[in-house]
C-alpha cells in the first residue's frame, strides 16, 4: 500500500447459492462454446506429462496412455485445457486480489502444526492425483461436468467421493477440528 494505510480486511465470501448459479452458468457456457465442460486434473495432467516427456521420452513413447498425450512429436500442452488451467489460477488470484484475501497462510485445524499439515497435504495430493486418473477425471471434469450432462458414471463417482470423505473424516478429525 503506497499510502501506508492498514491492510484492508478480507471481504466475506459470496453467498454459496449465488456462487453455485454463476458456476452453473460458466459450466453451461463452456459446453455451449467448446462442447466440453470444465476440468482441473486434466490441465495438471498435461503439465505433468509435458515434464515427463522432457525427462523420460522413451518411457512416454512406450505407454499407450502417455502416447496419446505426448507420443512422438506431440506436445501435450497444445490443447485448450492447458489454457483453462492457467485461467483458473489467474481467476482465483484475481478474485483474491480484488477481495483482499491474498496472503501466505497454512489452512489447518488448531491441533496440528504446519509441518504435519504440509506433509498431509502432500500425501492427500498423491491420492487425489491417483484417484482422479483412476476415475478418468476429478471432481470438476468427472463430477461437475459429467454430472451436469447426466452421465451415470459421473454421479456414481460424485457419490463415491462424498462417501469416501465422510467415511474417513471422523478418524482424521484431528487434522481439521
Amino acid at each position: 500500500m503506497m499510502d501506508g494505510t492498514v491492510k484492508k480486511q478480507p471481504k466475506p465470501f459470496a453467498n454459496p447459492y449465488a456462487a453455485g448459479v454463476l458456476l452453473g452458468v460458466v459450466l453451461f457456457v463452456a459446453f455451449l462454446l467448446t462442447g466440453s465442460g470444465l476440468g482441473a486434473s486434466g490441465p495438471l495432467n498435461r503439465y505433468l506429462v509435458y515434464l515427463e516427456d522432457k525427462i523420460a521420452p522413451e518411457h512416454v513413447n512406450r505407454v499407450p496412455y502417455l502416447i496419446n498425450y505426448a507420443g512422438g512429436d506431440k506436445n501435450p500442452l497444445d490443447n485448450p485445457f492447458t489454457f483453462l488451467g492457467i485461467g483458473v489460477v489467474a481467476g482465483g488470484f484475481l478474485s483474491g486480489l480484488i477481495h483482499h484475501r491474498l496472503r501466505f497462510e497454512t489452512n489447518k485445524g488448531p491441533r496440528i502444526n504446519n509441518q504435519t499439515r504440509w506433509l498431509m497435504a502432500f500425501l492427500g495430493g498423491i491420492l487425489m492425483g491417483y484417484g482422479a486418473r483412476f476415475a478418468r477425471g476429478c471432481t470438476s471434469g468427472q463430477g461437475l461436468s459429467g454430472g451436469a450432462v447426466l452421465s451415470v458414471g459421473s454421479w456414481a463417482f460424485l457419490l463415491a467421493v462424498f462417501v469416501g470423505a465422510y467415511a474417513l473424516a471422523y478418524s482424521l478429525r484431528r487434522l481439521w477440528i
Partner: peptide, 11 residues
C-alpha cells in the same frame, strides 16, 4: 477412484 479422491480430500 472416487473413494480414493474422497480419502485424499480429507487427508
Amino acid at each position: 477412484g472416487g473413494l480414493i479422491m474422497g480419502f485424499g480430500f480429507i487427508i
